[in-house]
Design a protein around this nucleic acid. Sequence first.
DNA 1: AACTATTATTTGCATTTACAAATAAATACC
DNA 2: GGTATTTATTTGTAAATGCAAATAATAGTT
Lengths: 144, 144
Amino acid sequence: MGPLDSYLPYLLNRAGARIATAFNDEVRPLGATLQIWRVLAALREQDGRRMGDLSNTTSIEVSTLTRLVDSMEQKGLVARRRDANDARAILLHVAPAGRRLTQRILPIAERYEEVALAGFTAGEAEVLKAALRRLYANMDGLES
Amino acid sequence: MGPLDSYLPYLLNRAGARIATAFNDEVRPLGATLQIWRVLAALREQDGRRMGDLSNTTSIEVSTLTRLVDSMEQKGLVARRRDANDARAILLHVAPAGRRLTQRILPIAERYEEVALAGFTAGEAEVLKAALRRLYANMDGLES
DNA sequence: AACTATTATTTGCATTTACAAATAAATACC
DNA sequence: GGTATTTATTTGTAAATGCAAATAATAGTT
């Protein structure tokens, strides 16, 4: 293996960690965390999602997610409801306070996209995003 | 903000998290973790590094790193030495067991780069890496 | 219908993590 | 030289994390 800054997983982690900590610091004054934002953003995309589904989209481990959702529920950000068609499942819904918090975080999230991609042309940004999707899909290729 | 899978920080985290958990699962049988590997890889690049330096290159918070290094020291993977020129600083060195573990993990790390970039041309891979470096540097724009 | 296997979520528990404060040494200031 | 400031690392402590086991409900088999 060559130098670290030619190693893709390293570059990926480094960029992701830097955005993550900065973002986290920024939403903390709003009483939020990055993880809370991830759940809210997933519910904004589609409300009433299962825990397992949320775990997949947020990359938060299910057992961690359970406890995170506990605390979000206590803060009135979300509400758990049993799935009527499958009593094993929970459908998680945003609550009013969650919607308000989402609205406050959105401009910050948008700014992060701008700052991260500063100096990129629209084309370059799209190439990067496509590569990241492809890379994610490539990980299917690991034998399990 | 549009759909989640057009949002860069999301794509970045998702790809990084997936590689990270898979890698972690894979090195566990060797008695290692992803975090241990990050320290070993940083020391492989340059031995005798300061804690703060290591924290920067591994993206591991310093206080977390202190305790990680404690455990690595106990396992005989690394050794702390006081910097002779600056008694505040620690210089961390790989130890024999650390070198052996590094050698065992290296092929796994190389395989991950291959799998992640499967189907990418050399040029595409380089464009992606350059973009990730650029993105990382762009985050300077938030520092105040 | 009873029995087994599968899927969805939660809980137990030990470890990891991170903010803040504490310690320790170097550098700057006067 | 003595005092304040900055820099490097560690420690205290509470919260977050993740594996494994437990719980609960559905689906499949006979």
